[in-house]
Design a protein around this nucleic acid. Structure first.
Lengths: 143, 143
DNA sequence: GTCAAGATTTAGAATAATTCTAAAGACAGG
DNA sequence: CCTGTCTTTAGAATTATTCTAAATCTTGAC
């Protein structure tokens, strides 16, 4: 493995280790799939894409890898509708605009801390998810 | 049926009609279940509670009723974790504080329009969902 | 280096959540 | 009251996720 290859993994490896996980080729593969096409795929879609490069990878492993990445803070779960959970490697503060018609997801950065206001007494916030539902420009035009 | 009973249904009946749905005892039952205990139950939990009053109600009907209520703007879907969708009859603008440890959900009203900032060009917003993840006071204490 | 302990992957079974199907029932309009 | 449409029902089917047990890999102790 060359220096560049090594370097490209070092961040991932480190984050995994910090979370108590080992670096594995499968975890790298799953993470690469998410980084490569940022269209908020479901676990099933990640599985299909990962298989192209790594045909022996299994379903259960994809879930395992996604869970590990989520626990390490490298990936976030996105729940936009009934049915499959989607995954997003963009860890910056942003919200998801979701077209209820065609299913497209747009990431939109949040300006600031987007103060959510008061909170239950003693509640320790880890992170928040903002999903905006509606129609994308194309679908709105068709109506 | 007395006047009070009739009155208590008229709003529901009207909203259903406006959405192109009929008023049915099952839809009333499902809505009543949600109004009665506002703990963000899953469809399965709604089914179990509805059965107590209406033992013949079926699984599919509960999903049908929940869908109808959602489409009429009487109930909202809440997706907080992988797995079952929850339902919430509180249609005021509010966000959900979710304890990742014990699963408790707290509704917190949003002060204003809680400006979410810029949006994709042409996107027509219908509604938004804000979920705050973390630990409730009790669970935070135990750590 | 060799071994044991623990982590990870795999295929496939199992479970959970949701949707579909076909038949029966209810209901509004003519 | 017919007729077409909507709704409900039981249960099958599908989809999403988790579990299981065996095989493989990694790491640290010796």
């Amino acid at each position: 493995m060359n220096a560049v290859g090594k370097k490209s993994n070092s961040g991932l490896s480190e984050r995994l280790n910090t979370g108590g996980f080992r670096f594995t080729p499968q975890r790298k593969q799953v993470y690469d799939v998410l980084l490569h096409k940022r269209d908020h795929p479901t676990a099933e879609e990640v599985f299909i894409r990962a298989k192209k490069q790594m045909p022996e990878i299994s379903h259960a492993t994809v879930y395992n890898c996604l869970d590990a990445l989520v626990q390490c803070g490298l990936v976030r779960l996105v729940q936009l509708e009934r049915g499959a959970t989607r995954y997003c490697p963009n860890m910056e503060e942003h919200c998801h605009y979701y077209c209820d018609e065609c299913g497209t997801v747009f990431d939109v950065a949040l300006a600031s801390d987007a103060a959510v206001g008061p909170r239950p007494r003693g509640f320790k916030v880890d992170h928040y998810e903002i999903a905006v539902h509606g129609l994308c420009a194309d679908c709105a035009k068709k109506k």
